[in-house]
Lab assay of single mutants.
Amino acid sequence: NRLGIIYEIQGMKAVVLTSEGEFLIIRRRKDMKVGQQVSFENEDIYNV
């Protein structure tokens, strides 16, 4: 599992900021809110 803070939500995608200072786009889940810490898997990351 990886951890990140939700920075922005766009439709079915969420932008998270990881503890390494990396911004990633992941698959959104219904319970996500901006500012929330979430765990996610590598499979949830969109390749940009």
Rank of each mutant, 00 (worst) to 15 (best):
G11Q: 09
E43R: 04
I9N: 01
V16P: 00
V38G: 01
N47D: 11
M32S: 03
I25V: 12
L17D: 00
K30R: 14
I5Y: 07
I26Q: 01
E8I: 10
L3G: 10
V34R: 05
R2N: 06
Y7R: 12
G4D: 01
V38E: 01
Q10P: 01
F40M: 08
E22D: 06
I9W: 03
V48Y: 04
G11N: 10
F40T: 03
S39N: 13
I45S: 04
G4K: 00
V48P: 15
M12S: 14
F23K: 08
F23R: 05
I25D: 03
I6F: 00
D44R: 02
Q37K: 09
E43L: 03
K13G: 04
T18F: 03
I9P: 00
K13T: 08
F40H: 01
E41G: 11
G35N: 05
R28Y: 15
K33H: 08
S39K: 11
L3I: 13
K30M: 15
V16G: 00
I5Q: 05
D31N: 08
N42Y: 10
R28G: 11
E8P: 00
M32I: 04
G35C: 12
Y46I: 12
G35E: 02
V48Q: 14
N1W: 12
G4M: 02
E8Q: 13
S19P: 08
R29C: 08
Q37L: 08
V15D: 01
N47Q: 10
G11M: 06
V16C: 05
N1M: 14
N42G: 06
Q36S: 09
Q37A: 10
M32E: 03
T18W: 04
T18H: 01
D44N: 02
V34Y: 05
R28A: 04
R27M: 12
R29A: 08
T18P: 01
Q36I: 07
E20S: 13
R28K: 12
G21K: 07
V38F: 05
I9R: 01
D44W: 03
I6L: 04
Q37P: 07
E8C: 10
F40N: 01
M32Y: 15
V38W: 14
R27T: 06
N1F: 15
I6H: 00
R27Y: 12
V16S: 00
M32V: 05
Q36P: 00
I5S: 03
G21Y: 05
E8D: 09
R27E: 03
E22C: 15
Y46C: 15
G21E: 03
Y46R: 07
Y46K: 09
A14P: 00
R29T: 11
G11C: 15
Y7S: 04
K30Q: 14
M12T: 11
E20P: 04
V38K: 01
E20A: 14
R27N: 08
I5G: 01
Y46V: 11
I26V: 05
E8S: 14
F23Q: 05
E41L: 12
D31K: 14
S39P: 05
F23C: 10
L24T: 06
G4T: 01
E20C: 12
E41W: 06
L24V: 09
S19K: 14
I9Y: 03
K13Q: 06
Q10K: 12
Q37N: 09
G35K: 03
V48A: 09
E22G: 09
K13W: 14
I9V: 09
I26N: 00
S19Q: 15
D31R: 12
S39R: 08
